[in-house]
Design a protein around this nucleic acid. Sequence first.
DNA 1: CTAAAGGA
DNA 2: TCCTTTAGG
Length: 345
Amino acid sequence: MGVDLGDIISRSKISLDEFAGKTFAVDAYNALYQFLAIIRGPTGEPLMDRQSRVTSHLSGLLYRTTNLAERGIRLVYVFDGKPPSLKDTEIKRRRTIRFEATTRYESALSTGKFEEAKRYAQATSSLKDLMIDDAHRLLRYLGVPIVQAPSEGEAQAAYMAARGDVWAAVSQDYDSLLFGARRLVRNLAISGKRKLPMREAYVQVEPELVDLTSTLQTLQLSREQLVDLGILIGTDFNPDGFKGIGPKTALKLVKEYGRVERIAEVNKDVVPPPELDRIREIFLRPAVTSNYTLEWRESDVESLVQFLCGERDFNEERVRTVVERARTAMAKESGKKTLESFFGS
DNA sequence: CTAAAGGA
DNA sequence: TCCTTTAGG
C-alpha cells in the first residue's frame, strides 16, 4: 500500500489550473488499480463488455486522460517491470487479501447483501495481462507516451521527476518521495465533492502537491533519513515496519538518532532486518532507465473508436466527443494549429 | 472515475 | 440552476 507518511508531511491543495502546460509521470499501475477498484456497478461488478472482459480501467483512463488534456495537462504513463524480489512477501500478502475479499464478496452477493458485496468487491481487483495490453492500446491510440520501467513504475516516475523531464510524479502513494521525486501530486483528477460509499459524508477531493525539498526542510531530515523513516513505518519491502512504531514515533527517533542502526542501539524493539541496506538501495539507487522519449502524437481517433466501440462496446458518440474536446482544447491552449505542434518537443 | 439523468 | 443519483460497459 505504500509508506504511510500522510500524518507527518505537509500537503498543499492545488487547483488544476495551476497545472496547465505542465507534464506529469503517472504511476500507471497505481492509477489502473484505482479505476478497477472504484468504477463498478450497483452489485460491485466491474464494468465489462459483452464478452465479460473488464473495461473499468479503460473507462477511467480515457476520461481522466482526455479531461486533463483538455485543461492543458500532459501525462506520460509509467508501467511496472519486474518487481524487486524483496517485494515477494508483500505481493503474497496482497494476494491473500484479494482471495479473502473475493470469498466474502461472493457470499455477500449470494445472500443478496449488495451493499456489503460492493464494499468487498473493491478489494478483489487484480490487474490481468489483458488489462495492461488494453491500457497500452488505449494510450497509444490517444497519442500519449508510455514508459516501461525496468522495475518499479513508481521509482521510474520519480526518477523522471527528479531529472526534471516531467514536472512531478503522480501517485496516491508517498513512496515517490523516498524514490527522490522532486514533486509528488496526489488526487490528480477532476476535483469536486465526492460522497463516501456507505456514509452520509462528503469529501472534497482536490489535487495535493508535496514538494520534496520543502518536506525535508520542514522535517529537518536528509533524504537518507526520510528513507529510514519510511522503513521504520513500513514499506512494500518490509510491510510490517517495526513493532509499536508509527509515523510520529519514527520521526522523533530518526531526528534524534539519525539512522536505524543508532536507534537499535537504544531501543530494544528496533531490530534492524538483515536486508536493511538492500531496502535502502531500492529507494536511493533504484533500477531505472533513461532510455525513453516523451513524444505526444496526434490521436488516432479511428483506431481508438474501432478498439473501444468495435471491440469493447463503448458508446461511439461519447468516445468521439471526449477525444474531440480534448484535441480542440489543446490546440487552442497552445495557440497553434495542431496538437502536434503543441506536444512536439 | 466521469457523464448524464433526475430532483429540488 | 444546482445538487444528488444513476448509468456507463
